[in-house]
Write a protein that binds this DNA or RNA. Structure first.
Lengths: 225, 225
DNA sequence: TTCATACTTCGACCGTAGCCGAAGCATCTA
DNA sequence: TAGATGCTTCGGCTACGGTCGAAGTATGAA
């Protein structure tokens, strides 16, 4: 016993319902203030304050102070990946009644600011099949034809390259159990779709709602097989 | 709030130190009896019994009854993957003193019966670089030349194909943060190395100890770059 | 300066869950 | 049949951690 990193400490951190709600809320990728997160978690500000301190101390959240507000966000993408993998286990469990809201989430949702769900997986598959993305040892790699494609799509690759964050990352979908595209490129692709008004975020949840034109355009842009 | 699967329940399950020890012990891939796990977790049999029931009920463990013994194992590979991703987060945290035992674990260890750690990552990289393994959308795929290679290595591919379990899977290493080879092929490769007496398991931990000849042979079989 | 807002600290309360001793089944051995 | 051995159930103890009200510290607005 007592070998390797201590799982139980992190798991305990995630295990409290209020903290789990906070983490889930931050899966969208946006930064939220302490009071906003208190509402999200369904507890009073004092209680939330304690939880947030623990999460930051545990390395799961990062915090930025701005005036009298404190903005919290996930510490890094790995946290989101780990949370998704836990969701994968949780969705296995019995008594998982799938409501209509759940269906929307399975179809398309935001995961740390990139596209996840059936449509996320479809996009990833399309890019790979057409040779735009190559799934390398560590992470997916954008090929030359792929760079041309996403530039055409309207993504400013030069700006993304300038950032230190990794361009491509893969993330395992809890609902689909397949890979979708994360990383700064994944975020940029979703941002572009929002700019083009293909898709709109649901204010209440992580669900993404594609309108009629958006759906058609998506199918055209990311054909599969 | 209350969207997607309920993370907190699974996380709470993993969050108790005794249960975390149990899960970690089962990461080797072997099935253990209730009393063995009680010792591993450092609690009395009664207490362990309760924990084990919860883990089975939560879908994290599977159980097989054999005479008056009960053998417990991880429910499926996804559980191991999720645990590894939690370890990845945990190893980030401060106050992670890395002892000598930890070093051995980082070098080579068993992860659900396949090879993990630096040497696991190295093997995966070597196989990919030489075109034996192609990292596809879902999971790695063994190429034709790859099939020839592993057959030459002494793995009975026909037997593996006959099993329903997936041949190749990738698993993210908590210590290396890179991919290594899991799935039935991953297990077969490690088994073959043990047959050849390249490597021996440590009884006390998940560490794998390569002897001198084993190390040399490994370097020869899986060159990198 | 004065008031409002955002967040934190303190203290007390309470519930839950882990823990073990004792006793109870179930299964194998002699 | 009697006696081990492996696992489970029960009951009661304990402690830890989540919760909120009240009060305290920052920052910004009037």
């Amino acid at each position: 016993m007592k070998e390797g990193p201590d799982i139980s400490r992190v798991a305990t951190l995630i295990g409290d319902p209020a903290r789990a709600n906070i983490l889930t809320a931050l899966m969208t990728g946006v930064a939220l203030t302490a009071t906003e997160l208190a509402v999200e978690a369904g507890v009073t500000p004092q209680t939330a304050s304690g939880h947030l301190a623990k999460l930051v101390d545990g390395g799961l959240l990062q915090v930025r102070k701005q005036g009298r507000h404190k903005y919290f966000a996930l510490a890094h993408g790995d946290v989101a990946v780990a949370l998704e993998s836990l969701m994968g286990l949780a969705s296995d469990m019995r008594r998982t009644r799938t409501g209509p809201k759940d269906l929307a989430l399975r179809r398309a949702r935001v995961c740390y600011n990139h596209l996840a769900g059936q449509m996320g997986v479809k996009m990833f598959a399309s890019l790979t099949q057409r040779g735009f993305l190559r799934d390398d040892v560590d992470a997916p790699v954008l090929t030359d034809t792929g760079r041309a494609f996403v530039t055409e799509f309207g993504v400013d690759l030069a700006a993304l390259d300038a950032m230190r964050a990794p361009l491509c990352r893969s993330c395992l979908d809890w609902s689909e159990r397949r890979t979708h595209l994360a990383g700064s490129l994944g975020r940029a692709m979703l941002a572009r779709m929002e700019e083009r008004r293909w898709v709109q975020r649901d204010n209440q949840s992580r669900a993404l709602i594609f309108n009629a034109q958006g759906t058609t355009a998506f199918e055209g842009a990311f054909p599969v097989e």
